[in-house]
Design a protein around this nucleic acid. Structure first.
Length: 552
RNA sequence: GCGCCCGUAGCUCAGCUGGAUAGAGCGUCGGACUUCUAAUCCGUUGGUCGCAGGUUCGAAUCCUGCCGGGCGCGCCA
C-alpha cells in the first residue's frame, strides 16, 4: 500500500462518517489529504493530522474526532494498528503484505517509477547559464549547469514537455571589448583597462593568429571585428564541448544577434505597443514597467536609435511565447536579482500572466574554499575557477551531485578538498555505493540462478525492510514536489535518506542464501526488494544526471 | 536610502510548503568483516534554531520590528 492509497482510505472513511451523519464538517470535507511519516518510529508507519484540522470545523475536540475516524480505519485489514496520540494525531501501521506489494509495483513500473503526469501537456522552456561567449564557463555557470539540467529532468519526469535553452549573449559592447582584448594580445600590446584580462586571452589570441592567416594585417577598422568573431566562434565551441562533457545538453542555443537580424525586436515592440504599455519620451522609446511593480520604467530604444539589452530581453520573451512555451523559466545569478521585477513586467506588458507564464529562479553565488581559505574570485585578476578545472578536480559525478544537493536560493560554499580529497566520504559516493551494492547482489543472484518471479510480500516484515519499503514509496511524491517547487535538490536529499535505509537493511537482512542453503521464499522476497531499490536509485540518480555504477 | 536573499551543532548544510523529543555529513572518541562490496553499519560528542514581539491547539517554518552578512539599484551588457 502506497501512502497515496492510504490517504485515499482515510478520505473514504471520512466520507462514510459524513454519510452516516456521525460528523458534519463545516465547509465540507477536504478533497485531498496527505499522510505524514513520523520522525519517531514509535508513532507508527504513517500519521495524519486530519482530526486536528477538521475537529473544530466539525464542532468537536480533535481527539473525539480522531476516535470516530480511528474506529472506521480499524476495520481495514491492511491497517494493523490505529492509535490516537497527543492533541489528536492518528498513528497508523500498515500490514506487511500490503506494504510489501510496493516492491512489485516498482518493478512493474521500472524506469517510469517516480514519473507522474502532474505537469502533463505543459510546454516549459528552461533557460540557464546564458553566458557571454567571451571566455570559459566558471563556477557560477557550473552551478546552473548542474541544477538547470537536473530541474529540466525533474520537470520532464512530472510530464512536462521541456526545452533546455542557452541564450548566447553575443551582442553589445562586451563582445567589442573581447575583440579589442584579443587584438591587443595578438600584437603583444597591453590589454585595455576595461577589457578581458584572463590568461586564456593570450592563448586564444595566439591560436587565432595561427589559424586565421593575415588577421594581424587587416585594416584597423576590420581587425577588432575579425578577432571578435574568431574568438566568439572558438569560445562558443569551447563552452559547448565543456557542457557536453558535463552531461548538460541544450536543445536550443539561442543567439541574441539572431533576434536583431530577424527583426525580432521590431516585431516584439509592435506586439507590445498593441498592449498599450509603450510610450515615447526624451527621443527614446520606453516601456511602462512601473504599471507592473517595477521601480522605474525601462528604455527599449535609446536616443541614438540603438535598442537596449532590455529590448533584447523583451523580444526574447515574446519569441519564446510565440514558439509555444506556456511557462518560461529563467535561472539567474543573485547578482541579477534586480531583473526579476522588470522581467515579470515584460510578461505583464505583453498581456501575459506574470505569475504563470514566467518564473525566475535566483541562485545565490557560490563561494569556494581551498586549503581552508576562501578563494577571492575575480574575472579581472584572472582568478576565476572554471568548469573544466572543477571537473578535473572532482569528476563530473561528484561535481554535479555536490552542486545539486543544495537549494539554489541559499548561498553555497564549495570546499574543494571536501569534494576531492575526501572523495570517499562525499555523499555522492554514499548514494552511488548503494547502487553498486545492489547491482552486485543482483549479479550474484543471477549466478545462483534465482529468478524473480513470484514472492510473498508478507515476508518483508523486518523493521528495516519496512523502513526501506516506506522510503521507496516516497519517491513519486518527492519527484512531484521537486518539480512543483522547482527544487531538484530534494531528489539528492531523498536518495541520501534512502541509501541510509538500504545500508541498514543490508546490514541486518541477509538477502541471498549462504553457501549450501536452499533458496527460501524469504530470499526471493528480499531479492525483489533489492531489485526495486536498485530501480529507485537508478531512476533518482538519472534525474540528477549522475551515473549509477554497477561496480565501485 | 530602497529592494531581494540568507542567519539552525566546531565546519558545510537539511528540515517534507505550521506538527510530536530540531536532523545529516564532516570533525572528536570508541566498537563491528572466515559468509551477498567495511566507499558500510553501531555507539559517543555536540544547539538560547540571530534577537524581540505577534498569529494558534502547536512556530526553525507564517506576520511585524530590530541586529548581523551577501547581492542589486545605468538610455552598460
Amino acid at each position: 500500500m502506497t501512502p497515496e492509497q492510504l490517504a485515499e482510505k482515510i478520505l473514504q472513511a471520512l466520507a462514510a462518517l459524513a454519510d452516516d451523519g456521525a460528523i458534519t464538517v463545516e465547509g465540507g470535507l477536504p478533497r485531498e489529504l496527505k499522510v505524514e511519516r513520523p520522525k519517531n518510529p514509535e508513532h507508527g508507519d504513517y500519521a495524519t493530522n486530519v482530526a486536528m484540522q477538521l475537529g473544530k470545523r466539525a464542532g468537536m475536540n480533535p481527539r473525539q474526532f480522531a476516535e470516530l475516524l480511528a474506529a472506521r480505519l480499524r476495520d481495514d485489514e491492511a491497517i494493523t494498528a490505529v492509535d490516537i496520540a497527543g492533541p489528536g494525531f492518528i498513528n497508523l501501521r500498515v500490514a506487511a503484505d500490503a506494504q510489501g506489494k510496493i516492491a512489485q509495483s516498482i518493478l512493474d513500473a521500472g524506469p517510469a517509477y517516480g514519473t507522474s503526469d502532474s505537469l502533463h501537456g505543459r510546454a516549459i522552456n528552461v533557460e540557464f547559464i546564458s553566458a557571454n561567449p567571451t571566455g570559459p564557463l566558471h563556477l557560477g555557470h557550473t552551478r546552473w549547469a548542474a541544477v538547470g539540467d537536473a530541474l529540466a529532468r525533474v520537470l520532464a519526469a512530472a510530464g512536462a514537455s521541456v526545452t533546455r535553452e542557452f541564450y548566447i549573449n553575443d551582442r553589445g559592447n562586451q563582445m567589442d571589448k573581447f575583440g579589442a582584448s584579443l587584438q591587443a594580445a595578438a600584437h603583444g600590446q597591453p590589454i585595455p583597462e576595461d577589457g578581458y584580462h584572463g590568461e586564456y586571452i593570450l592563448d586564444l589570441a595566439k591560436q587565432i593568429v595561427a589559424e586565421v592567416p593575415g588577421i594581424t594585417e587587416l585594416p584597423d577598422a576590420e581587425q577588432p571585428i575579425a578577432f571578435r568573431e574568431a574568438g566568439y566562434e572558438r569560445q562558443l565551441k569551447e563552452q559547448q564541448s565543456q557542457l557536453e562533457h558535463f552531461r548538460t545538453k541544450f536543445d536550443v542555443w539561442f543567439s541574441e544577434r539572431s533576434l536583431h537580424e530577424q527583426d525580432g525586436v521590431g516585431h516584439a515592440i509592435q506586439k507590445l505597443r498593441e498592449q498599450g504599455h509603450l510610450y515615447d519620451a526624451d527621443d527614446a522609446l520606453w516601456m511602462r514597467t512601473t504599471d507592473f511593480n517595477d521601480d522605474k520604467d525601462r528604455v527599449l530604444i535609446r536616443t541614438n536609435g540603438e535598442p537596449t539589452y532590455f529590448a533584447s530581453d523583451a523580444a526574447y520573451y515574446v519569441n519564446k511565447r510565440e514558439r509555444g512555451f506556456e511557462t518560461c523559466i529563467y535561472m539567474l545569478g543573485a547578482d541579477h536579482h534586480g531583473y526579476v521585477n522588470r522581467l515579470k513586467a515584460i510578461a505583464a506588458c505583453a498581456g501575459d500572466d506574470p505569475e504563470h507564464n514566467i518564473e525566475i529562479l535566483i541562485g545565490q553565488l557560490v563561494k569556494i574554499l581551498k586549503g581552508g581559505e576562501e578563494m577571492k574570485l575575480s574575472k579581472r585578476a584572472g582568478t576565476i575557477v572554471t568548469l573544466a578545472e572543477l571537473v578535473e578536480e572532482g569528476g563530473v559525478d561528484a561535481l554535479r551531485y555536490t552542486l545539486c544537493r543544495y537549494p539554489t536560493d541559499s548561498p553555497l560554499t564549495l570546499d574543494i578538498e571536501e569534494m576531492t580529497r575526501q572523495a570517499s566520504e562525499n555523499p555522492v559516493y554514499y548514494v552511488q555505493y548503494a547502487h553498486a551494492r545492489l547491482a552486485s547482489i543482483l549479479r550474484n543472484a543471477d549466478e545462483l540462478g534465482i529468478k524473480l518471479d513470484e514472492f510473498d510480500p508478507g515476508l518483508l516484515s523486518h523493521e528495516r525492510e519496512g523502513d526501506l519499503l516506506r522510503a521507496l514509496a516516497e519517491f513519486p511524491r518527492v519527484v512531484a514536489t521537486a518539480a512543483e517547487l522547482r527544487e531538484p535538490h530534494r531528489i539528492a536529499r531523498y536518495l541520501e535518506d534512502t541509501a541510509s535505509a538500504f545500508h541498514k537493511f543490508y546490514d541486518s537482512c541477509r538477502v541471498l542464501p549462504r553457501g549450501d542453503e536452499e533458496v527460501e521464499p524469504v530470499h526471493k522476497a528480499r531479492l525483489t526488494l533489492v531489485s526495486a531499490t536498485r530501480t529507485v536509485f537508478a531512476n533518482g540518480l538519472d534525474l540528477l544526471g549522475v551515473s549509477a555504477p554497477e561496480r565501485m
